[in-house]
Each structure stands twice: as C-alpha cells, then as structure tokens.
C-alpha cells in the first residue's frame, strides 16, 4: 500500500486510540455520572469514529468495496444510538434521584438550574470544597 495511505491510516488509528483511552480515563477520573457521560460521549463519537475511519481508508485502498460500506453502516448505527442511550442514562439518573455534581459558587451567573426540580437543594448543600469534591452522589 502507498506510503501516503499508510500515514493517513496510522494517523487516524492513533488519534482514534487517543480519544478512546482519554475518554475512558475521563470515565474513571470525572466526579459523577453526568460528567462521565461526556467522557463516554467522546469514546462513542471520536474514538470509535476515527478508528473506524482509519479502517475505512485502509479498506478503500483496494478500491470501493463492501467492507468500507459496512464500516460506514457500523459507524452510522453507533452515532445514531449513542446519544439516545446517553440521554436515557441521564433521564433515568435524574428521575432516579441522582444529584448532578456542581462546583459551589459557580451558579451565580447565567440561566442556571433551579427550576428543573431535579433535587437542586442537595446540590446547594454540597460543601464548596473546590474542584475535586468527589461528587455528592456517593
């Protein structure tokens, strides 16, 4: 295979791997389920997307073929289902009584939560202990 194609595939696969590992690291490091959802979204969008794009470029090197079409289909299914699953988790967590982690004092400006009824009082009584408060869900 050509050098340029090889380089493109390497770049796509490595950046996809970067986003996969970073998103998973975020799932371990971030404080609560709502912030972890963003990290999980990273894995679902760019991690999977760039990796599959790399595979797609590699297989397209042999000319247009079914493998590339199927990779595009896999990616399309992933990208269609991922936000719905994420939203389902978020909705279930909210209605299940999980309180979103907030940094206290940052709620001064803007049109911020308070009329969601999603247990804002628990968010308010969380101690203002800086960035890594560990989440008030534990």
């Amino acid at each position: 295979m050509g050098d340029i194609v090889s380089v493109v595939v390497w770049v796509l696969l490595l950046s996809g791997a970067f986003f996969l590992v970073t998103g998973s690291l975020g799932m371990v490091r971030l404080p609560d389920v709502f912030t972890r959802m963003h990290a999980a979204g990273m894995v679902d969008t760019m991690g999977a997307g760039l990796t599959l794009a790399g595979l797609c470029v590699y297989s397209l090197h042999d000319g247009a073929n079914l493998v590339a079409v199927r990779l595009v289909l896999v990616l399309a299914f992933l990208w269609f289902t991922s936000p719905i699953a994420t939203h389902a988790v978020a909705k279930a967590a909210l209605s299940g009584g999980t309180t979103p982690y907030t940094v206290r004092g940052a709620e001064a400006g803007g049109e911020v939560d308070d009329r969601t009824g999603a247990a804002p009082e628990a968010a308010r009584k969380a101690p203002g202990d800086g960035e890594r408060g560990g989440g008030d869900t534990r």
Partner: peptide, 11 residues
Amino acid sequence: PRIRVDPSIVH
C-alpha cells in the same frame, strides 16, 4: 493534572 470541571444544568 487537576480536573477542573464546573458542570451545571443550563436551559
């Protein structure tokens, strides 16, 4: 190195 998140719910 230090996670600096400021999550909130916006409308």
